[in-house]
Design a protein around this nucleic acid. Structure first.
Length: 461
RNA sequence: GGCGCCAUCGUCUAACGGUUAGGACGGAGCCCUCUCAAGGCUCAAAUACGGGUUCGAUUCCCGUUGGCGCUACCA
């Protein structure tokens, strides 16, 4: 039997980490079993569903590399649902509950639970279609949790449609999963309590029960459910902040699942080959951005220069010309420091550690002196000597390696800090910056000499 | 409230009756070092609680506590 899984989001918000991980697990399971992965947009709630969100979901899925084999939108399928609703009514498994009956029911609920029990609806009561609950015990074997049992009596006769043209979640899910040939429903834990009523509908329809696996929820840092207000960042935002899709996939796969070895850095292919539902965690997991950053850093380290350059582009200041010589020289320096590509904004910002490549910032003369040996005369002497050495390097071969080799003997005999600190400050004007050899090469021979002379001038004044 | 699910370091997790309870992120310290990083080494840090079962419980059972979910004409 071919495995068919699905991801069925409602387009009522941006696609964020919580639903993303559920999609990932479903996708992995389908791929692992050489099956199909279906994307189904559940837009039966006309009020809250928006096209914008649907596009966001599709874009994010694509960016992450989770391609789907089939695509459906529930709003395109109302005719089919209608047939099923009529069938259910005809067979006595469902009935129309009139507005009057609804009013009575509402009163009974208030009497039973007190007015705090239900969110009061200001809408006038209308007639709806309810499922005739056989009031029995329902059990299923959850792929992740084992046997789960419910007594469905307390569910009462639940609503399956507002009218023949407007079915409600529980009904459409059941019909679609059946019609689409879904075999394994891997979904969030919040649906575990919904499963019995879906099974009831399935039985009323005379359809077979499917395999259910309920994946633990992703939690905000206070262990509450992840929500828009609390920590649910859209996947598209991670993209725009400069996270790599591979890092995201890798991190989220490990949130709630763990391979039998301790290897954490894995490609999607490796994850697919190692994945098993038995090793999926039962408890909810808190999403930790620090660890995501660590993954992103590991993935950045593995990027080729060309790929690194490509990913950097959107975050670079205007004065850096893509594909220029300076840009190429910058790549290894940047790669050492970037955790997410958005870091580039700060690094090249007014007081960023890489701003010196463009223009040196104002800084107090005292900063030219090494705090461990703040000797003005010695600093002037060292800078002058360095200047003479740099003069011997041709403009065309002014690389970090060449600069270093011509200066190194002098640096070693006169003290690294004594020579290099004033030099680094003279070249960059920053407490934090790449080493002076790299910095010199980045700004070039002419500019380096100019800045060194200026520093000597200030120290001598 | 009712029903259900869950419970190992701060966080993600390993362990499928016998381990000095392992790894990773983060943290601390040391080394390296002209700065900031990176890198290397080291350390601190957990089985929620109480009963059973067993020669032996993180592991199995029961209870308590706690967290979460569902309890909608949202999905």
């Amino acid at each position: 039997m071919t495995v068919v899984t699905r991801f069925a989001p409602s387009p009522t918000g941006y696609f964020h980490a919580g639903s993303y991980r559920t999609a990932l697990f479903s996708w992995i399971y389908a791929r692992q079993n050489k099956g199909k992965f279906i994307l189904r947009i559940e837009d039966t709630d006309k009020e809250r569903s928006k096209k914008e969100y649907e596009e966001n979901i599709v874009e994010s899925l694509t960016w992450l590399g989770l391609e789907y084999d089939e695509f459906y939108r529930q709003s395109d399928r109302t005719d089919m649902y209608k047939k099923y609703i009529q069938q259910l009514i005809a067979s006595g498994h469902a009935y129309v509950s009139t507005a009057e009956q609804e009013a009575i029911r509402a009163k009974e609920m208030v009497a039973k639970f007190g007015k705090a029990a239900k969110p009061e609806s200001s809408e006038p009561l209308r007639s709806v279609i309810r499922f005739k609950n056989p009031n029995k015990k329902v059990a299923f074997d959850d792929l992740i949790r084992g046997r789960v049992e419910f007594d469905t009596t307390e569910l009462g006769d639940f609503v399956i449609a507002k009218n023949e043209d407007e079915p409600v979640f529980h009904l459409v899910v059941v019909i679609d999963d059946h019609e689409m040939g879904v075999t394994h429903i891997l979904r969030g834990e919040e649906h575990i309590s919904n499963t019995p009523r879906q099974i009831l509908i399935l039985e009323a329809l005379g359809k077979p029960i499917l395999q259910y696996g309920h994946i633990p929820l992703l939690l905000a840092s206070d262990r509450s459910k992840l929500s828009k207000r609390k920590g649910a960042v859209p996947v598209s935002e991670y993209r725009s902040r400069g996270y790599l899709p591979g890092a995201l996939v890798n991190y989220f796969a490990l949130l709630g699942w763990h391979p039998s070895d301790d290897v954490e850095i894995m490609s999607l292919d490796e994850i697919v080959s190692k994945f098993s539902l038995e090793r999926v965690q039962k408890g909810g997991a808190i999403f930790d951005e620090e660890k995501l950053k660590w993954f992103n850093r590991q993935y950045i380290l593995k990027l080729s220069d060309a790929d690194f350059a490509e990913h950097s582009k959107p975050f670079l200041p205007e004065w850096i010309v893509p594909n220029s010589d300076t840009f190429r020289k910058l790549i290894p320096v940047l790669r050492d420091k970037v955790v997410i590509f958005a870091d580039l904004h700060d690094m090249f910002g007014a007081n960023g550690e890489m701003a010196f490549v463009h223009r040196i910032a104002e800084y107090p003369t005292d900063k030219l002196l090494w705090k461990k040996n703040p000797d003005r005369a010695a600093s002037v002497k060292h800078l002058s000597a360095v200047k003479e050495f740099l003069l011997t390097v041709a403009e065309s071969s002014f690389s970090a390696e060449n600069v270093k080799s011509v200066l190194w003997p002098y640096v070693e005999t006169n003290g690294k800090g004594d020579v290099l600190w004033p030099l680094r400050m003279a070249l960059t004007g920053q407490d934090k910056s790449p080493d002076p050899f790299v910095s010199a090469a980045l700004i070039g021979k002419t500019e380096s000499l100019k800045r060194i002379e200026a520093a000597i001038g200030r120290l001598s004044a």
